[in-house]
Structure formats: C-alpha cells, structure tokens
C-alpha cells in the first residue's frame, strides 16, 4: 500500500512540475490579494482617530502592525483550501481518459489512488506556502513577523496548514471519486471558494462581523487555521504561552482532519469499487 501510494504521489508531482503553469496559476490569486487588497486596506488611514482608537483596532486585528501581516495567515489558508478543491482533478481526468481503468485493474488498494493525490497536494501546498511567505515578506509594507519568530513557529504554521488541507482535501475528494467531468469540480470549487473564505476570519477579524456571520466564522476551520498562523507570525516564539494559545485551534483542526479522513477513506473504498 505504502509503496504504490508513493509511486502515484511521484506521478502526480511529476505532472505538476512538468506543467509549471499550474504552479503559477495557483499562486497568482493569493499573491494579488496580498499585494492589492493588503495595500488597499491601510488600516491607519481608513480609520483615523486618536491613538486609543488605533490601539483598539490593532487588538481586533490580533496585534498585526499592518493589514498584510493580518492577511498573510488568511491567504495561506486560501491557498491550501483552493488547492484542495482541484486536487481531485487528476482523478477525474484519469477517469475520462481511461487511465483509471488501468489503475483499478491492478492489485493496488483503492485508497492508494485518492491518498496519493492527497499527499502530493499537501506537498504542493507546503512548497507554495514557502513561496507565498517569501512574497508577503518581500512586499513593500508587507509581512512583519514578531521579534521572536523562529523555526518552531514555522513548523507550527506548516502543521496547521497540513491539518487544514487534509480536511478539505478529503472532503473535495469525495466529489472527485464519483465525478466524471472536470466541470463538476470547477462548479463546486468556484461556488464554495469565496463564501468559505469570507465566512471566516481569513480576511477580517470576527469581532467586526455581524452576529450571524460570526456564528458561521467561529466554526469554520479556516478561521481556526488563520488565527493560529496569525498568532504564530505576530507573537512568534512557540513557548508555553503560545502553545496554550494555539492548542485549541490545532485540536479543532485535528478533529476536523480526522472526521474528513474517515469520510474520504470510506468514499474511496466505496466510490472506486466495481461499477
């Protein structure tokens, strides 16, 4: 199982780097959001007022010195969630091209087919994460990390994103397991993408939201991930107090990933069986 899964992971990664347009396309949106949206929302200018008002605002924004710093966590989540929507694409293509028949006629586990796409997409997500962090940092007036930010925080960020993406990857994989057209994935992805993002604290703090939206955003796994990453970026130093601050979010994301994995594995076993 492990060996076949790994072979299929390698296959998907080869397809990815041999089509560099994919990598560029998946980065364009979050980078533009960061650069345009991040700069357009200049918090200090938008809400003029005394120092007290600015301090209150900064508290709402988790202590972020500028909007790009606040937004980076949200954009990283956006990056892996949109990535997960397309992760099933190769499966749908294999089905419509006929390659899936060849795969399923071999003695490999059915779960290896979906699990391999999941793993390769986690790998892609982490590579894109690094690139996006560098871009956010390099932007003029861009990301400002906390003074004590270190390697442990970076690992914490990766771990958070892995949990978030595993959850969404399995969820969207359920669709790909049965879909025979790429358009099905595109329709679901484009319909769910932005609402999921806006109904979370990825773009704006929940404190400023109306009650009903806040109720949704509070349970949205994207919020949990965005907040955990933000905390690690801004506060830095994964010491005991930081651990306590992000533990709740991580546990929540872990549970989300576990439930989605159960659903996804079940769907792979039953969705890819004999027709």
């Amino acid at each position: 199982m492990i060996s076949e899964t790994w072979q299929l992971v390698v296959r998907d990664l080869k397809k990815w780097y041999r089509t560099p347009a994919w990598m560029v396309a998946s980065l364009v949106q979050p980078v533009l959001w960061l650069a345009l949206f991040g700069n357009a929302f200049n918090l200090a200018n938008m809400f003029p007022g005394g120092d007290a008002a600015k301090a209150a605002l900064q508290t709402d924004f988790g202590g972020a010195p500028n909007y790009i710093t606040f937004l980076t966590g949200g954009m990283l989540c956006f990056l892996v969630v949109t990535g997960s929507m397309w992760a099933g694409g190769p499966l749908v293509m294999d089905r419509s091209l006929g390659y899936l028949d060849k795969l399923l006629a071999t003695p490999i586990s059915r779960t290896a087919v979906t699990l391999s796409l999941l793993i390769s997409n986690v790998v892609k997500g982490l590579i894109l994460t690094v690139i996006l962090l560098v871009v956010a940092y390099a932007l003029p007036g861009g990301l400002v990390v906390g003074a004590s930010f270190g390697a442990l925080d970076l690992i914490g960020i990766f771990a958070t994103l892995v949990l978030l993406s595993v959850g969404f990857l399995w969820l969207f994989m359920v669709v790909a397991v049965r879909a025979s057209k790429f358009e099905t994935l595109a329709a679901i992805g484009s319909t769910l993408g932005l609402p999921l993002l806006f109904a979370s604290s990825a773009l704006l703090p929940v404190a400023t939201m109306p009650g009903w939206l806040r109720a949704i955003a509070d349970v949205n796994p994207i919020s949990k991930a965005a907040e955990a990453i933000r905390y690690l970026l801004i506060q830095g130093s994964l010491n005991s107090s930081a651990v306590t601050a992000v533990t709740g979010d991580i546990v929540y994301l872990g549970a989300f990933a576990a439930v989605c994995t159960a659903i996804g594995v079940y769907a792979s076993k039953h969705g890819l069986r004999m027709e």
């Binding site: 080869k14 006929g98 390659y99 028949d101």
Partner: peptide, 15 residues
C-alpha cells in the same frame, strides 16, 4: 494475473 490495455489513454502523456 492479468494485464489490461483500455481503449483510450492507457499511458500517461505527462510521463
């Protein structure tokens, strides 16, 4: 014990 060559794409063009 079998080998299958389906009608359409039995080979991956990206490999």
């Amino acid at each position: 014990r079998i080998g299958l060559v389906p009608q359409d794409a039995a080979a991956d063009g990206d490999l």
